[in-house]
Amino acid sequence: MHIVHTEASCGWGGQEIRILTEAEGMLRRGHRVTLLCPPEARIFAEAEQRKIPVVALPIGRKRLPGVLALRRWLKAVPVDVINTHSSTDTWLVALASRLLAQPPPLVRTRHISASVPKNRLTRWLYQKATRHIVTTGEKLRLQLILENGYDPARITSVPTGMDTEYFVPGHRAARRAQLGIDANVLVIGIAATLRSWKGHEYLVQAFSRLSTRPSRLIILGDGPQRETLRRQIMELGLQDRVFMPGDQRDVLPWLQAMDIFVLPSYANEGVPQAIMQAMLCALPVVTTPVGSIGEIVTHDATGLLVRPKDAEELWQALERLAADASLRSRIGTQARQFALAHFGLDPMLDRMEKVFAGAMAGTRR
């Protein structure tokens, strides 16, 4: 197949990483893959670095030049299926397809749990212009069925796959020596784009009350909330205990240096890759039952679940794990066992191949 992915977003996070991971997997299986995105998007440079064929098009905004550019490209290049990932590129592809005599089937992947508008135009986009919808979790699939009334036969949940041979537990002391972290402190960490709904502020609040000393909080990532978080850390007098190394191309060394991983999101999640990576590294995870997180984290088994936006409950969960090394070990071990059984790359690629083939068969009919 010639599979084309489109991504209008210039941001960087799990969604963009999944696109590239899936593209690499399909290339290894012998398919032809092309990514279409704005030239200024980070995913453009990342695709080039990973040797994924990528074409720059002006599709970062919902404007006529993007529609026309997509139409020209799709008219000139034979495509079997086109997989869109954000609202903007989905609309642009759908409109460009209306201008083609034989457009490729459109598959729309939904990565987050934000509500889909309930209006006639959006319904046309999802139920007429789109051949099939993919969600990254079953709860996201049910949301579209129950809240929007979309056809369940045309929606498939395909969780993101991880490289289970790469994300493994490491030698904690060696990693800390490499990263300049004291070997004798309790290290709590988060890896996420610094967006408000990732819940960093609640984590900082909870950490400020932690009785365990010495302890450190590591905040990996970058984004629009960086300065807000810096101010909060200063106001709480935590500047010597909270570190913000910024965005990291490789989070594995940091995960292997941690004792506890936290992601207190309160909106918009699918199945966060950071949690999956932490579980593969045998870390006990504290998180919230937002989006499809509850499909991989079971309370007191593969992690601890707390209410969203509840710094008090988050603090209690951290206190519990900080005080009990055996509990951390038990939950971390069970998390890794679950992750190894469910997070492989091949199941994701198998399911996406089936979705794409089905979309193509629908076109032939």
Score class of each variant (00 low, 15 high):
178 Q>G: 02
24 E>H: 11
291 G>P: 04
180 G>M: 09
71 R>G: 04
49 Q>P: 00
155 I>N: 02
294 G>V: 06
58 P>Y: 12
100 L>W: 10
275 I>T: 01
63 R>A: 15
204 V>M: 07
283 L>F: 10
270 G>N: 03
33 V>R: 04
27 L>G: 04
111 H>C: 00
209 R>A: 12
82 I>N: 01
80 D>Q: 11
217 L>S: 01
191 A>K: 01
129 A>M: 03
294 G>R: 07
301 A>G: 11
122 T>E: 11
77 V>E: 15
222 D>G: 13
245 P>F: 14
339 A>E: 08
133 I>V: 13
358 G>Q: 14
307 R>I: 10
166 Y>V: 10
139 K>L: 13
110 R>V: 04
279 M>W: 07
33 V>W: 08
237 G>E: 13
40 E>P: 03
352 M>H: 14
67 V>M: 08
291 G>T: 02
319 E>R: 12
299 H>E: 09
121 L>Q: 09
98 R>N: 09
9 S>P: 03
242 V>E: 04
284 P>Y: 12
47 A>T: 00
113 S>K: 03
168 V>M: 10
226 R>S: 07
269 E>K: 05
188 I>F: 01
21 T>M: 06
356 F>W: 15
23 A>M: 10
111 H>Q: 01
8 A>Y: 08
77 V>H: 14
149 G>H: 11
310 D>I: 13
54 V>H: 02
363 T>H: 15
348 M>R: 02
14 G>Y: 05
20 L>I: 05
290 V>Q: 03
256 Q>F: 05
60 G>D: 06
41 A>G: 03
225 Q>W: 14
314 L>M: 12
200 H>K: 05
7 E>D: 09
129 A>W: 05
159 P>S: 08
277 Q>N: 10
128 K>A: 13
259 D>L: 01
97 S>H: 09
156 T>A: 10
102 Q>Y: 15
53 P>D: 06
34 T>A: 08
36 L>E: 02
121 L>F: 14
229 L>I: 11
275 I>C: 00
323 A>H: 15
157 S>W: 04
246 G>W: 11
76 A>R: 14
303 G>T: 04
330 R>A: 12
221 G>F: 02
187 V>T: 02
56 A>L: 09
180 G>R: 08
24 E>L: 15
145 I>H: 11
196 S>I: 12
320 R>K: 15
123 R>M: 04
85 H>P: 00
237 G>Y: 13
